[in-house]
Computed example of a mutant assay.
Amino acid sequence: MDDLSGITVLVLDDEQMVRENLEAFLEDEGLNPLTATNGEEALTVLAKNEVHVGIIDMRLPGMAGSEFIVKGHKVSPQTRFIVHTGSTNYKLPREIRDCGVTHDDVFIKPLADMNIVMEAIHRLVNQGVSNT
Rank of each mutant, 00 (worst) to 15 (best):
G39W: 03
M63R: 03
P110N: 09
F68L: 00
V45K: 06
P33M: 01
L22G: 00
E50Q: 10
V117G: 08
A120D: 06
H84V: 07
V125E: 04
E40T: 13
F81M: 01
C99Y: 09
N126S: 12
L92Q: 04
S130M: 14
G39C: 09
G62D: 08
E119P: 00
S5V: 09
K48S: 15
M63H: 03
D113C: 05
N32H: 14
T37S: 11
I108R: 09
V51N: 05
E41Q: 07
L34H: 14
K74S: 12
V70F: 10
G128S: 12
N131A: 15
D98K: 04
E29G: 12
M1P: 11
N115W: 10
D28P: 11
N89E: 15
V83D: 08
V9E: 00
P61W: 04
G72M: 02
D3P: 02
Q16E: 15
K91P: 08
N49A: 04
T79S: 02
R123H: 03
L92K: 10
V106K: 06
H103S: 13
V129C: 10
I7K: 13
M17H: 15
A42F: 00
P110R: 06
V125Y: 10
N38I: 05
V11M: 02
F107M: 11
G62H: 06
Q78I: 02
M17F: 13
V9R: 03
I108E: 11
I108L: 07
T35E: 01
K71L: 14
I69W: 01
T85V: 10
E41M: 04
M17C: 12
G6C: 05
M114R: 13
A42G: 05
E95L: 12
E15L: 06
G39Y: 01
G6V: 08
G100R: 01
E40V: 13
A120H: 07
V53G: 02
K74E: 11
F25D: 10
F81I: 05
N21T: 15
V18P: 00
L46N: 05
F107W: 07
F68D: 03
I116D: 08
K74V: 01
C99M: 09
E50N: 13
D13G: 00
V125L: 07
E40M: 12
I116P: 04
D98T: 03
T88L: 15
P93K: 03
V53P: 01
L26M: 01
V53Q: 04
D2G: 14
E15P: 05
V75K: 04
T102L: 05
L34E: 06
L4I: 05
V51D: 01
V75S: 08
D98H: 07
